[in-house]
Write a protein that binds this DNA or RNA. Structure first.
Length: 479
RNA sequence: CGGGGCAUAGCGCAGCUGGUAGCGCGCGCCGUUUGGGACGGCGAGGUCGUCGGUUCAAAUCCGGCUGCCCCGACCA
């Protein structure tokens, strides 16, 4: 907590982001390069996301399990594309108990291989399918450059792994989990993500098809917020995950995997934050309401605190997450501090309010006086509940309007360059090759984000090659 | 791995024409304050990243090492 002003996001978005992470108390620097300490406030935010996901996983029939952190090196090598994709960023354990290991272990960068090996043993018959599993875990990827939450060498995530009897079932699972991610992003995090199919170049190493949800951050860059992969039979063949079908025929399974990580915390910061700090969607906020008591004399203190405690009890009884700020700071300091930390609703309660059976409510999604109003204390939990719902909806609306105002349809490469230069998503008909996609990336730094699932229909002319195109794609600078 | 920086109090920095360390914020105590980032007084806190060299004397000059940050190529 500092009394200095926050760097403006318009001035230096990157610096603004780093300052918020630090000053909103989400994370702290660690002694290990590229790793951060997730502090309690940041971890609670992650727990909110985690809970929202976990409920949905269970509602769709998945069970949680836990697999080892260490994976035999040879497992990674079983799937050619997979090992090629992950080799550069593996951390490898070569010594254990003071002795060089016969076979090195890699610290999991993802768990398709070790879970594939288990699935091989667990699946024999079509009666064992589908096998629907998820694990909450940490993974390590030796990244060159890191940023808190967005890319760290160790991060927390969930990885779902499923096995099915047919391609279509696997595809349906892949899409179902993509929908779960979009549901969480949109309705919990208030980030209006776009569902889409990844290009060949952006596809997960070893997958048949990769789908993602892409969010637009406050600087108009894209952030991949979750991915869902149809792995086809690639891993099933590499790990011999087979079953006997109704006709007593041996077949390879069709598998999927899907993941969402602590990167989502960074997404919430970058999608909603403003010049005063973090803005948290009520559904994920560790504290939905903070009460700031205000008093001068000891007499006032007693009266005010009694009222504050009564309000708190009532809100808690209605499942509203409340925090009372009793720290020995002046109110103005606390207002700024909680705005930095993004609490959706602040209640200010002083002697005047006690006398009037009132409380001043300030909403974080609207700045200054515009967001402040006096509420009666009668029926306070109902008022607050409605207010939280309204804030959640308003934040989604604001983010959606921002996104839609910054997606541009392009018909030529020059137009795309213009969009990328001024910031935003460029959407256009695309029929380029992998190499042509890479050429665009090399020249202007924009990448193929996805082919949105929501397509205009019909066909068009590729903005880059002039060839006939069957799909539109989104290009943008990305994190 | 290529390019550029930086390492001094919890954080941010100054000191670098050599003489044994200081500022702001933060922290502790006391008092006055408290409806939009309060103020005064007192106080605690540092083997100056590390190893070596020069010197009567090194945070300061020289060399090696290590770590971190920023910009690129790779990525949830």
């Amino acid at each position: 907590m500092s009394s200095q002003a926050l760097t403006s996001p318009r001035e230096d978005f990157s610096e603004w982001y780093n300052e918020i992470v630090y000053r909103a108390d989400l994370a702290a620097a660690s002694p290990v390069r590229g790793c951060v300490i997730i502090k309690p406030y940041g971890y609670e935010l992650w727990e909110g996301i985690k809970g929202a996901l976990d409920r949905r996983f269970k509602a769709t029939g998945h069970q949680n399990a836990y697999f080892p952190l260490l994976i035999p090196m040879s497992f990674l090598q079983r799937e050619a594309e997979h090992v090629e994709g992950f080799s550069p960023e593996l951390a490898v354990v070569t010594i254990g108990g003071g002795k060089e290991l016969e076979e090195p272990y890699v610290i999991r960068p993802t768990s398709e291989t070790i879970i594939g090996d288990a699935f091989k043993k667990w699946i024999q018959s079509y009666r064992d399918l589908p096998l629907l599993m998820n694990q909450w875990a940490n993974v390590v990827r030796w990244e060159m450059r890191t940023r808190p939450f967005l890319r760290t060498m160790e991060f927390l995530w969930q990885e779902g792994h499923t096995a099915h009897a047919t391609h279509d079932e696997a595809e349906a699972e892949t899409m179902q989990m993509l929908d779960v991610y979009a549901d969480v992003a949109i309705n919990e995090a208030a980030i209006p993500v776009i569902k889409g199919l990844k290009s060949n170049k952006e596809r997960f190493a070893g997958a048949l098809r990769t789908f993602s949800i892409e969010g637009m951050m406050g600087d108009k860059k894209a952030l991949q917020c979750g991915t869902s992969h149809n792995l086809g039979q690639n891993f099933a063949k590499a790990f011999e995950i087979q079953f006997v079908d109704e006709n007593n025929q041996r077949q390879f399974c069709w598998t999927t995997s899907w993941g969402m990580s602590t990167r989502m915390v960074g997404a919430v910061v970058m999608a909603h934050g403003d010049e005063k700090g973090l803005r948290l969607p009520p559904r994920l906020a560790p504290y939905q309401v903070v009460i700031v008591p205000i008093f001068k004399t000891d007499d006032d203190r007693g009266v005010v605190m009694e009222n504050v405690e009564r309000l708190k009890r009532e809100l808690v009884a209605h499942d509203i997450r409340v925090h009372v700020d009793t720290r020995d700071y002046q109110p103005g300091f606390k207002f700024n501090d909680w705005e930095m930390r993004g609490v959706p609703v602040r209640l200010e309660l002083g002697p005047r309010d006690v006398a009037n059976n009132a409380v001043v409510a300030a909403r974080r999604d609207k700045p200054g006086k515009e967001g402040k109003r006096v509420l009666t204390q009668d029926n306070i939990s109902a008022s607050i509940r409605d207010l939280l719902i309204e804030i959640q909806a308003n934040m989604l609306q604001q983010a959606t309007e921002f996104r839609d105002a910054n997606i541009f349809d392009v018909k030529s490469y020059d137009e795309l360059k213009g969009v990328v230069e001024q910031g935003g998503f460029a959407r256009g008909w695309w029929a380029g090759t992998d190499d042509e996609e890479l050429a665009i990336k090399a020249e202007i730094g924009a990448t193929h984000r996805c082919y949105p699932l929501d397509q205009p229909g019909g066909t068009g002319t590729c903005f880059y090659t002039g060839r006939p195109a069957e799909r539109v794609a989104i290009f943008a600078k990305a994190y």
